[in-house]
């Protein structure tokens, strides 16, 4: 492959390292604000978080490291999201968020080298139950 490698040692060192937990108290107001932002007036969201609410429970350190790692690629997009629901996230819950980078993949994209960063995020409630399992792919290009 003639393209320059974009997977740095810095990024590789993050593979399979668990970051977190970030601990979030699920307040009624933050759930309401999220439902209002997505303009979904389903009354269920007064007590239960809407499906994509885990997007607001950010695994801060992993994302900070991924987005700020030194690489010649400066542009970033979200590639995909996958959420598996095991327990509802409810107002009053305390959710602990842990995350890891599981895979790095470089491909030759239309606009040059493209880096896919695959992550897994686990959202655990105050009873120690995994509420949601998430996967997210980020693309640097």
């Amino acid at each position: 492959m003639s393209e320059e490698p974009v997977i740095s040692e810095e990024l590789e060192s993050l593979l399979n390292v668990e970051f977190g937990p970030d601990v979030y108290e699920i307040e009624k107001g933050m759930v309401r604000k999220f439902a209002e932002a997505i303009e979904d007036d389903n009354p269920a969201w007064q007590e239960v978080a809407p499906p994509t609410f885990p997007a607001a429970l950010v695994p801060t350190e992993l994302l900070h490291r991924l987005f700020n790692a030194k690489t010649p690629l400066t542009r970033l997009l979200n590639g995909s999201s996958d959420l598996e629901y095991l327990q509802p996230i409810k107002v009053g819950d305390t959710i602990s968020v842990t995350a890891k980078l599981t895979r790095l993949r470089q491909v030759a994209g239309q606009e040059g080298p493209t880096l896919f960063m695959f992550t897994e995020v686990t959202y655990t409630n105050q009873r120690g139950e995994v509420a949601v399992k998430g996967k997210n792919t980020y693309i640097k290009y």
Binding site: N42, P51, T52, A55, G79, S81, D82, Y85
Partner: peptide, 25 residues
């Protein structure tokens, strides 16, 4: 993806449940 989740949960009503939701952008 939130809009897609809204579509699905609205259709599911009170008695249906969402077990998994995913999307590629």
């Amino acid at each position: 993806l939130s809009f897609l989740g809204q579509m699905v949960t609205h259709w599911l009503g009170k008695e249906g449940t969402l077990l998994r939701l995913n999307g590629s952008y």
